[in-house]
């Protein structure tokens, strides 16, 4: 074994791989959230739908997103593998346990498995549909002088070869954009109670996973310092375990209650 494989397959190295992939996923969550906040814009989905096109066509973003899919799978299966190994380290179980640690920290693999199921369903809902199914198209016309946007659903059966058709009419001073209406897909999907509820559960799981996970990743990398650790812990709890999941959870809630 080379020194590098030896390092990465040692108990500490295995954890470092969890930590680095976990932190990458944390960064992804932040970016994903910032993008998705455009769902709350009251513009008929103009900002969100054109953003979705950028995310799936711009090459650097595409490379990072494939890396991200790989990291999710790696993190999930590596985590489960570690959990199985760790259980083997105690071949006879205790009869009575009063463990002095947080519930989150003891149930990372369970929370992670919920997250994996969540991620698969989520990708099937939106990612797969966006890439493979004939979603309806929508046409946005932006008045270049005022910035006002008018949207118009394209007739059923309309389709185009490229993801985004865009033309400027300088006589009328307008810019027209035709894209798949993922915004509509999302807003219809979340009118379903069960799906919205499932998404809320997913966000609760993220919150608990990161309540322990975010600060734990730094400890794994050897970062534990009286000056910085309180800050890292606070960010883990407030930003990653609370604000980010709550902001994501607001999306299904927003569309679910909007229908009434």
């Amino acid at each position: 074994m080379s020194w590098l494989t030896q390092t990465l397959t040692s108990s500490i190295g295995k954890k470092v791989l969890m930590s680095l992939t976990g932190l990458f996923l944390c960064l992804f969550l932040v970016v994903h959230l910032i993008g998705n906040l455009q769902l709350f814009k009251d513009d008929g989905g103009y900002a969100f739908n054109t953003y979705a096109v950028t995310m799936t066509t711009f090459t650097p973003v595409k490379i990072i997103s494939y890396l991200n899919y790989f990291f999710i799978l790696f993190h999930a299966f590596w985590g489960i593998y570690l959990e199985v190994r760790n259980r083997k380290a105690r071949n006879v179980k205790y009869n009575l346990i009063r463990n002095q640690s947080t519930w989150s920290s003891r149930n990372m693999a369970l929370l992670g498995t919920i997250l994996l199921v969540y991620i698969v369903v989520h990708m099937g809902d939106f990612w797969y549909k966006f890439h493979n199914e004939p979603l309806p198209y929508v046409q946005y016309t932006e008045m270049l002088s005022t910035g006002e946007v008018f949207s118009q659903v394209m007739p059923a059966g309309y389709t185009q070869d490229v993801k985004q058709v865009e033309f400027v009419n300088s006589d009328e001073g307008t810019r027209t954009v035709i894209v798949k209406d993922l915004y509509q897909t999302v807003s219809v999907a979340f009118q379903n109670f069960l799906l919205s509820f499932f998404y809320l559960l997913g966000m609760v799981a993220v919150g608990f996973h990161l309540y322990h996970g975010f600060q734990s990743a730094f400890q794994t990398l050897g970062i534990n310092h009286p000056k910085y650790s309180p800050f890292i812990k606070a960010v883990g709890i407030w930003v990653f375990a609370f604000i980010i999941p709550a902001a994501f959870a607001a999306m299904p809630l927003y569309f679910y209650f909007k229908q009434f």
Binding site: S11, K15, Q100, S101, T102, S105, S216, Q219
Partner: peptide, 18 residues
């Protein structure tokens, strides 16, 4: 020491703090 620890079959740390 870490190599020996791994050899003995102890689990890996998940920072629970117990």
């Amino acid at each position: 020491m870490v190599a020996q620890m791994d050899e003995e079959g102890f689990g890996s740390c998940t920072n629970t703090g117990a």
